[in-house]
Design a protein around this nucleic acid. Structure first.
Length: 140
DNA sequence: GCCAACGTTGGC
DNA sequence: GCCAACGTTGGC
C-alpha cells in the first residue's frame, strides 16, 4: 500500500463535502498536469491512502485522510492527450488540523515534497514514515 | 498584492 | 529545438 497527498482548495471542495457525498465517494478529477496525471495512471492503486490537503488559504495543511477506491480511470481525452482521475472515499477527518507550518518545523516532515518551496504539484507521494508521523500528530 | 517556481505557447 | 513571454499555482 502506498501513500499520497492530494491538494484541494477547501472553499471549492473540502473534507466535509466529501463526507457528505453519497457513500462518501467522489471522483478526484480536473488534474491537468502530466506528472500528476502519470501518478494517477501508473502509480496510485486501489487500497492506497491519501491525505486531504488544503491549499491557497492563510494556513494550509492536512485535514484528514481518504481511501483510494480506484485510480487510472479515464476522465477525458482531448487532442491526443488522455486525462485520468481516481475515485476517493472519506476515511477520517483529523481532530486536529496539521498545518504546513507544523510540517515545516518538524525535523522528519520538513523534507516532504509539499513543504518544498515553489512546489505546485497537486498530487505528491508521501513516505510511510511521513504518513505515520502525521497520523500520530493528528491525535495529539 | 507580491513573487517564486514552474508549465505552456508560439515565434524563429 | 531554443527561448522569451505569458499564465498558473500557491505560500506569504
Amino acid at each position: 500500500m502506498a501513500f499520497w497527498l492530494f491538494k484541494s482548495e477547501p472553499y471549492v471542495f473540502n473534507i466535509d463535502d466529501l463526507a457528505n457525498r453519497p457513500k462518501q465517494i467522489e471522483p478526484w478529477n480536473g488534474v491537468r498536469n502530466y506528472q500528476a496525471r502519470n501518478m494517477l495512471r501508473d502509480h496510485i492503486k486501489k487500497g492506497d491512502q491519501a491525505f486531504f490537503y488544503y491549499s491557497s488559504i492563510p494556513a494550509p495543511g492536512v485535514a484528514g485522510i481518504m481511501d483510494i477506491l480506484q485510480s487510472g480511470v479515464v476522465e477525458e481525452t482531448q487532442n491526443n492527450t488522455t486525462w485520468y482521475m481516481a475515485y476517493v472515499r472519506f476515511k477520517k477527518k483529523f481532530s486536529r488540523f496539521i498545518t504546513l507550518e507544523e510540517i515545516k518545523a518538524h525535523p522528519k516532515l520538513k523534507t516532504m515534497q509539499v513543504a518544498r518551496r515553489g512546489n505546485r504539484l497537486s498530487i505528491t507521494p508521501v513516505t510511510k514514515e511521513e504518513w505515520h508521523i502525521i497520523l500520530k500528530l493528528s491525535l495529539g
